[in-house]
Every structure is written in structure tokens, then in C-alpha cells.
Amino acid sequence: MPEREITYREAINEAFVQEMQRDPNVILLGEDIAGAPGRDDPDMLDAWGGVFGMTKGLVGKFGSQRMLDTPISESAFIGAAVGAAASGMRPVVELMFVGFCGVCLDQIVNQGAKLRYMFGGRAKVPVTVRTTIGAGLGAAAQHSDCLYSIFTHYPGLKCVLPATPADAKGLLAAAIRDDDPVIYFENKVLYETKGPVPEGEHVVEIGKANIVRQGTDVTVVALSRMVNVALEAADILNKEGISIEIVDPRTISPLDEQTILDSVRKTERLVVVDEDHPRCSMATDIIALVATKAFEYLDAPARMVTPPHTPVPFSPVLEKFYVPDAQRIVKAVMAVVPQKR
């Protein structure tokens, strides 16, 4: 497939076009995903295309029957997406910011996640819930969480978190095609980032990690936007003669344990970089995985680089302190490698 550079946002949009053309059962629901719903004025059509413009242009291509703007009623419309999925549709529903999940969690975790199991496997719920995560925009405590770890806690949900434009496209396509409920986490700081993305059909298998950079000294498992921060750290460390291997799990439920374990067996050192809250998190989960399945390979205690155990603060000064940066990764890596000098 030929590739060209497009943004993370464009990649998401492209996946939608691809999947909506492919399958008429794919419908989108969410607040202002098109904009100005119900207005006849053609100039108003598509007034927003989503709060960050991810779904712009789709209503023009597919019509308002498949691009359903909703009232601010998350329990109702996310639950409706679950119900429609159980009834043969393939809905993609947007929860504008993951921090709003408290409003509608039952429909996701008690309905979407459990119907199949409770019904003895006699139901399937091919719904995709898209949501936005991440600090860095000064959006304060209720609009900056990551919270993906809590969804991995629920059996029955799959969770994917693309870090690159190519994965944004490929994982969204995979999420939509998947017959189980998938939560798709878009990092809002990544929308403008560019990268090579295959033209035409592109699907990234759910459950496959990506080795973003090969290395020999330390395995750095980094999630979502932290992959880019780890890449920055890798360049700094390179100058010190330290080579890190960056593993991006890409999907956290299921988790590609094998790729992580293989890498740790090779480097014998582990640092996990996770922007989510640090308790009961992907960071602790990955360290537990390595501690139980590859402990004998570890030459140093595993380290985690995470925000502190606080909500996300507003002030730019505080937010900068909160979000892990390259220097913190460098420090953690330096702490686990034997000093060369």
C-alpha cells in the first residue's frame, strides 16, 4: 500500500470513511459529531464535525441517518449504541471526554461488557466507544484524565490506544470490525501529529504490540502519547550510549504479553511510562506481568514513570509538573542501567 503523511485526526476520519463505505451497518452517534443537527441551512451542515473535528465531512458523505447528533444524554445514547449493536448494527459512539464516563458507566461496563457472558454467549455486542484522553491542553481535572486502565479491569471489553496516525486508522478499522465491544482512546494532544499512513484499507490487529524502536539496554513500555515522549528520551539516552527498546502495546485489553516479555528477556530491564493515574494501572499491571512471568530475567527493579496520584491540575505550571516528560524517563532509565562511567 502506498503511504503518505497525514495527521492522527485525518487518519481517524479516513478510517471512518473506509468502514462506513464498507458496511452500511456502521453508524456514528455522539454530541455534535456533525453539528447544527436539524438545521436546513446547508452552510450549517457539519458545523463542528466533533469537538476536535475528527468526524468532519462524514455527514456530507453519509447523511444524518448514519451520523446521529445526540442530546447531552450519555446514558441514553451510549446505551442505545450498545442496544443497537446487540440488535445487528455496528455503532461507533463518542464519549466526548473519558472523564464523562461516570455519567454513563453502567451502559458500558454492566451492559456492553457483560451481555454476551450473562446470555451464555448467545449475544454479540459489536459496539465501538470512542473517547478522548490525556492532559496537556489546560483542560483541568474533569477533561484531562486517561482512565483507560479502569476499562481493562472489566472482562468483556477490549481497549485500544493508538499512538500514531497509522495505528489510529488501523485500530479504528479493527475496532469497528470486531464483534466485541471495543473502547478506542484518542489522545487529544496527538490530533495534529503527522505520520505515514497506508492509503486504502488498513487494519491493525487488536492484541499486537509494536516495537517502536529496537534497543538493547532497557525495555521501555510506553502507552499512547507517552510513546512520543519515550522517543524523545531515547534520543537523549543515545547520546549517553544507552539504547532503549520502546514497546507500544497499542492494545491493552487484550495485552500482547509475549512481545513485552520477549523484550524484557532480551534487555533484562524494564521501565513503564504511563500517563494514567498510577494506582491499579497499566503500569502496575505490566510490572506485575513481568514480575510473575520473567522475574528471573530482571537485573534491576522495574520502574514506573507516571503522573503523581492526584487529579490533573489546571495551571500550566502544575500540569507540566504532572505529565511525565522525557527527562523523567531518562532518569528512570539511568536508574536501572549500570553506570557505564
Partner: peptide, 9 residues
């Protein structure tokens, strides 16, 4: 509400 008018919602 954002772009959504009350006639619709």
C-alpha cells in the same frame, strides 16, 4: 448546547 439547538434536542 454547543452547536445543537433546542428545536432538535
Amino acid at each position: 448546547a454547543e452547536t445543537t439547538s433546542t428545536d432538535y434536542s
